[in-house]
Design a protein around this nucleic acid. Structure first.
Lengths: 208, 208
DNA sequence: TTTTTTCTACCGGAAAAAGGGGATTTTGCA
DNA sequence: TGCAAAATCCCCTTTTTCCGGTAGAAAAAA
C-alpha cells in the first residue's frame, strides 16, 4: 500500500480523495493538511510516499510548497492537484519537482494510476494535462525564474511602492531595491514597470 | 432526512460531500451528476429537496443551470457551490434563484446548516460569502469611469509604452499623453503607473 | 444657449526610474 | 572547502514620470 498525504484547503476534496481511495488496494491516506505550514509540520512525523498538493493554498502556493517539500523531504513524490489546466501551472509544478499533475475531475483509476506512477518514480500526466503540454505551439515567452527576494520586491512594486518605500519596508538600501528592480526588468525583458506588472499578473507570478 | 442531489464535475468533490454527509442525521445524498444536462435528466426521476450546484460545469455554468432548475423543478432548493468567493458569482447565483452560496472549504457543520436552511426556505450564506456581500462600499473602491481616450492610453501604458511613444502612435503631443496619464492616476487614486496597471487589470478595465 | 466634459496642449520643477557599469558579503550546495 | 548564485551596496547619467497648476477648442449635456 502506498501511503498518501493530502494537502488541500477544501475538506470536501480531502474527504473525496479519502473516499475514492477507501476501497483501493494500491494506496491509503496517511494524513492531510489544509495549508502549507501545517503540512510541513505534519510531514516531520508522518512519512508518506506520495503527497497530493493543491495549487491553491491559503498560505503559500502549491508550486512553492512543492519546492519546499522536495527540499526537506526528497523521498516524497509530489503530485500537483488543481481544478485548472493552465499550461503555466503544469510546467511550473513539474519544474518545482512534482512527479505529475492531476486535475480534480480525475476518476478513481486516474488517481490510482497517478499515485502508483509517482511512487515508481515515473512522471504522470492526466490526459488533459498531457494534451495541453503536447498540443499548443509554445509561443509563450519563457517566464522568468525569480528569486524569493525578487518576488517580494516585485509584489511591492506592483502595489505602487517606490524604491525608497520598499527599502524602508525591507530595511535595505534604496540602491539595493533599484538593483533588484533592474534585474527584474532584465529578466522580464521589458523596459518599464508598467509592462512588468502586466506580465507578472499574466503569468500569475503575483496576485491581484 | 433531507434528500440532496450533487452536481459537480469533480468526482472528488462529490465523494467528499458524500463522505461528509455519510454519518449525518439531517441529510443524505440521493444522487449526483457531473454536468448540467445529465443532472436535468436525472432529476426527472429523482426528486431531491436540495441540489448542490457547482458554479463551474463543463457544459453550462452553474448560474444558468440554477435558473433552469428553478424553472423546471421549482420545489428544489438550490445551493451554489464554488471555490471562488467572487462577489459577482454570489449575487448572480442568488438572483438566479439559489437559496444560498457555499464555499468548497466548508466544514461538515456548514454543509449541514446550509442544507437545512435551504430546505426550510431560508437563505444561507457561508460566513465568508456573507462578509463579501455585507461590505460593498469598501470592497468596491469605486472603479473609475474612464473616457474612451483614457482607456486607449491606459492600454498603451500597460503595454510599456512611454508618453513619447504613445504620442507618436496617436499623433498627439506627449504633453497631452502626460495629461491623460495624470488624470488616470487621479481617477485610480494611485501614485504611480505600476499600481494603476494592477488596479486596471483587477477591475478588468484592461485585458492581459 | 449656457454649462460641463473631454480632448487637447503647455510650463517649471521635483522625484523617480532606467541604463550601465562595479563591488562586497552571504549563503547554499557540491 | 570552495565555487556560484544571490543579495547587498555604490557610482554616474539620462530619461521618464509625477506634481502643481493653466487653458483653449470641441463636443455633449443641461
Amino acid at each position: 500500500m502506498i501511503r498518501v498525504f493530502i494537502i488541500d484547503d477544501h475538506p470536501m476534496v480531502i474527504e473525496g480523495i479519502k473516499s475514492l481511495l477507501a476501497q483501493s488496494s494500491v494506496a491509503e491516506i496517511c494524513g492531510s493538511a489544509q495549508d502549507g505550514s501545517t503540512a510541513l509540520e505534519a510531514l516531520k512525523s508522518i512519512e508518506p510516499e506520495v503527497a497530493l498538493v493543491d495549487i491553491n493554498l491559503p498560505d503559500l502556493n502549491g508550486i512553492d510548497l512543492c519546492g519546499m517539500l522536495k527540499k526537506q523531504f526528497p523521498k516524497i513524490k509530489v503530485l500537483g492537484l488543481s481544478t485548472f489546466k493552465e499550461r503555466s501551472y503544469i510546467t511550473r509544478m513539474i519544474s518545482a519537482g512534482a512527479s505529475g499533475y492531476l486535475l480534480k475531475n480525475a476518476s478513481r483509476e486516474e488517481l490510482e494510476d497517478a499515485i502508483t506512477a509517482a511512487w515508481r518514480g515515473q512522471l504522470y500526466m492526466s490526459l488533459e494535462a498531457a494534451a495541453i503540454l503536447t498540443k499548443p505551439a509554445p509561443d509563450t515567452p519563457e517566464l522568468p525564474m525569480l528569486t524569493a527576494r525578487e518576488k517580494e520586491i516585485l509584489l511591492l512594486i506592483a502595489e505602487g511602492l517606490t524604491n525608497q518605500e520598499i527599502a524602508e519596508k525591507l530595511f535595505i538600501s534604496p540602491l539595493t531595491v533599484d538593483s533588484h528592480r533592474k534585474n527584474l526588468l532584465a529578466k522580464f525583458g521589458v523596459k518599464n514597470t508598467a509592462a512588468m506588472v502586466r506580465f507578472a499578473i499574466e503569468f500569475k507570478l503575483i496576485e491581484y
